[in-house]
């Protein structure tokens, strides 16, 4: 369980997060949505410890990050998996080496054990025969799969994804969404996803948090989002004619 209370974060004069409270549960896929500049990425990076909040607390399994010792923080980092917007794969390493990297850094497994685990996770993300390719030789969708494989190779308790569908075609986006949700269910991971993709919201949004100007404007499920009369959410989610029609049909039914 990941709990966030009253998180504030500023960069110089710019106040980006203005007191956000949220709870993320294990085995659930939670989506953070909002316009560009609403603070989604800063919020996610703050949860991951890449930014230190000015105020507020972040608790992993009931323990705040502030009260953790250096060793506990190091241990926590190994329970976190992250899929970055641009995949952030190491250019100089092959797919196999990229996925094996966290195992080499944090476990004492033998090479054959590590290779078995790498093969397992690569199969799990439906990526075969690419072990010896470099990231530059892969398509965007394949890079995202490798990033997911690298994020889950150490069996993390928390998975964070920043715009996992950016730059992907709609069909590949759905495949990646479903893969993240399956992994979340299967391993009971607490998954938090930043997204702009309304297909993802409808498809896998078990819990949706809408951020606006650094504040939590709305929270609900993918069903609630059809019924909400929150103007900011409606104008953001149903900005396209297609989604306007979808909502109309849903409400008529």
């Amino acid at each position: 369980m990941l709990e966030v209370k009253g998180i504030y974060k500023s960069f110089g004069e710019a106040s980006v997060l203005k007191g956000i409270d949220a709870t993320f549960e294990p085995g659930k896929t939670s989506l953070i949505i909002g316009q560009s500049g609403s603070g989604k990425t800063v919020f996610l990076k703050t949860l991951l410890g890449l930014h230190i909040p000015d105020k507020g607390t972040i608790s992993y399994d009931g323990q705040t990050t502030e009260s953790m010792t250096i060793e506990e923080k190091r241990q926590l980092k190994q329970d976190l998996g992250m899929v970055f917007q641009g995949s952030a794969l190491f250019d100089s390493l092959t797919v196999e080496e990229n996925v094996m990297f966290p195992l080499k850094m944090f476990t004492n497994q033998s090479k054959s054990e590590m290779l078995d685990r790498v093969d397992f996770v690569l199969k799990r993300v439906n990526l075969k025969d690419s072990n010896h390719k470099f990231p530059a030789e892969l398509s965007g969708g394949m890079q995202k799969r490798v990033a997911i494989a690298r994020a889950i190779v150490t069996n993390p308790k928390y998975l964070f994804c920043d715009e996992p569908n950016s730059g992907l075609d709609p069909r590949t986006s759905i495949v990646i969404d479903n893969l993240i949700q399956e992994i979340t269910d299967e391993y009971q991971i607490t998954t938090v996803i930043n997204t702009h993709d309304m297909n993802s919201v409808m498809e896998i949004g078990e819990k949706i948090i809408f951020l606006k100007d650094g504040l939590k404007e709305w929270e609900g499920t993918s069903n609630d989002i059809f019924k909400t009369d929150n103007e900011a959410v409606v104008s953001f989610v149903y900005s396209s004619n297609l989604f306007k029609k979808v909502r109309k049909v849903y409400l008529e039914e």
Partner: peptide, 17 residues
């Protein structure tokens, strides 16, 4: 610098490196 702008350094930090 390329590692920085493509978030590869962030990926290392998230892993606790």
């Amino acid at each position: 610098g390329t590692m920085r702008v493509t978030e590869q350094i962030d990926a290392l930090e998230v892993m606790g490196i």
